[in-house]
Design a protein around this nucleic acid. Structure first.
Lengths: 350, 350
DNA sequence: CACCTTTCAGTTAGCGTTACCACGCTATGG
DNA sequence: CCATAGCGTGGTAACGCTAACTGAAAGGTG
């Protein structure tokens, strides 16, 4: 006979514990939850029984009784996204302290997926949602619809103007502004923007920052200096950057510097430059955005803008947990500053 | 007065629907679930009511009644991991067909995190688990402990020898063998291994494949040709690759070719080579493993080994869903072949 | 027309948990 | 000595859902 049969095949319940500790179910519940009055002696007995049976409270039954699930959902556009990891870290740091579990789902950058994923979270009765998808008018509508179901919600990356939704965002405008200003100070006047098709940048804050920096320097922005994928407000890839730079380099008077919408695009552009035999940073300068881990290891290392991702995650989690405590809170928003990281890809000479 | 008040603050329940459709709760349940006998007329009435109230079944209450939750948990080592995305895609493809929801959690490469994340999934009563963490003896113990709780489970990436656990894995051994053989065929005899400290490769199949290829060619492996982080069976980074190559290049007779344990390590090594003024592939050849998206965009493009990640995810999901249907299944395992992708980093000349 | 089968709908109970109430017990104070 | 208050414990009901049963009506068969 084994010392103690490892476990029933069915997980232990409160009544199992109660039976073993020879108390009522209710007393067992109180002992486990440290609520109400329980004598030390009984509490010890219950704890011992719970331990022996490997008791784990059934969160589902708990939630059914109107308590919190102690779980939140995080919706990410894409798991390969370099932000994802840092963001989740920041969120988890805060959630762990309050013993909230975090579940992640992805939208694969499709609005349909976004909707079903969010609905799944709600169907499983998470206590709140952190949504880090990229903002498009259609996806905003989805979010507002979801928010109507009275689920506490925080967005990261783009504000949604809706009651009951908090937002956290980085100052993309300012970050782009700083990066382009840096290129201008390095002597460049012809600066291309990689990662979006001409005429589609109206809602892209990084593009607006680019324009503002040019304007401040008295440089008239040329539409032909913008290249990138159409119908992709959401993202832009290495391939896009590669093609965009090849395209702009063909101009009669091509840019001498490029600001890429994100680091992937910038890395693709660097590859294109090499293909064309252009030296970086001697022939052309390149700057990106996001400071992904590989940026520092590119050849040459990439000048870029670093977002305080971790901090955004933390702030979002704090907002959310507060809103779960008090759902009636007025919508709040926080904006965090970015930091320009100057590396070799943008400064000629040593 | 509004045309129709948007929604109660409390989500609609079956009894709400039943009341509105003037039937019993049970009949509403039958109509919604299409089980048992319900007349067409009543079914229509119920559906209409459900629609009007925006009814969504409470999965938690359902599970409590002994039904499936229709949700599985995926545990990933790290979200930034380039596999993660493809893996999740493969899993979702299969799960979507059967209307299973997928939730993701990360272990941050810590065994403690791994345990708490898995336990969280179980606490929330998911129907099954797909675990894609890297195998270490300690983590295997955790998995076995979890498996005792009778949760259907499939591992990806490393087999766990335990009843009730299926595994899916790629043939890392063979993939590494092919890559190293390729380097040998290109004329190299002094081939370094980057990504693990000397003497720690016993359980690393990629290292075993490397050794086997050398042996087959009659090359005696040198321990001093191995460099990388200690106590990191789990992973190796760009930084590790960078340092490892710098270290091996200092040898009196340094390797002329390097096989890196993964592409990140390889990219770090390429950076180190550039720092040293070594040309790739003319002075040294480099090959990696994993074929991450950036590998093709490195300078020069990186020779590497491509895993059938998507297929592994699909297979794992199929295993899991079968096991959820029939938990008594004997453990199964599947191994998928890798593919060598030859690019410029390994072949001198044009 | 008696009898069985199929269809349809309602009633009851229970999943695991906790809120609420009720009951005893002990200590305190008038 | 009885009222009152603070402890400690048990009983009951309910959260939203569905399995199992019960009952009734409709349809078919000989």
């Amino acid at each position: 006979m084994k010392p103690s049969s490892p476990a029933l095949k069915r997980p232990a319940t409160l009544s199992d514990i109660a039976r073993l500790a020879e108390v009522s179910t209710m007393t067992a519940s109180r002992a486990i939850n440290e609520s109400g009055y329980v004598s030390d002696e009984v509490r010890r007995r219950v704890m011992k029984a719970a331990n022996k049976l490997g008791y784990r409270p059934n969160m589902l039954a708990r939630q059914l009784k109107g308590k919190k699930l102690n779980a939140i959902g995080i919706l990410l556009p894409d798991i390969a996204n370099p932000f994802a990891s840092a963001l989740v870290n920041g969120i988890k740091q805060v959630c762990d302290e309050q013993t909230f579990t975090t579940f992640i789902a992805t939208s694969d950058r499709s609005v349909e997926e976004e909707q079903t994923s969010l609905q799944s979270f709600i169907d499983h009765r998470v206590d709140g949602l952190i949504v880090a998808t990229h903002g498009t008018p259609r996806s905003d509508k989805v979010l507002q619809k979801i928010a109507q179901q009275k689920v506490p919600m925080v967005t990261i990356g783009h504000p949604v103007n809706s009651p009951g939704i908090d937002s956290v965002t980085a100052n993309h405008y300012r970050g782009a502004f700083d990066a382009v200003q840096h290129l201008i100070k390095a002597g460049h006047r012809r600066i291309g923007f990689l990662g979006i098709a001409p005429g589609e940048g109206a809602s892209l804050r990084r593009y607006q920052g680019y324009l503002a920096a040019l304007e401040e320097a008295g440089i008239k922005p040329l539409e032909e200096y913008t290249a990138g994928p159409t119908e992709s407000l959401a993202f832009s890839t290495q391939q896009d950057g590669y093609e965009a730079l090849l395209q702009l380099a063909k101009l009669r008077r091509p840019p001498t510097a490029y600001f890429a919408r994100n680091d992937y695009t910038a890395l693709g552009a660097m590859h294109a430059a090499r293909t064309l035999g252009l030296r970086i940073p001697d022939d052309i300068a390149i700057a990106g955005f996001d400071d992904i881990p590989l940026a520092a290891f590119a050849a040459p290392p990439l000048t870029t803008v670093s977002q305080p991702i971790d901090a955004q995650g933390q702030q979002a989690a704090r907002f959310l947990l507060e809103r779960i405590q008090n759902p009636a809170l007025a919508p709040r928003s926080a904006m965090m500053e970015c930091r320009l990281v100057v590396r070799k890809s943008s400064v000629a000479g040593r």
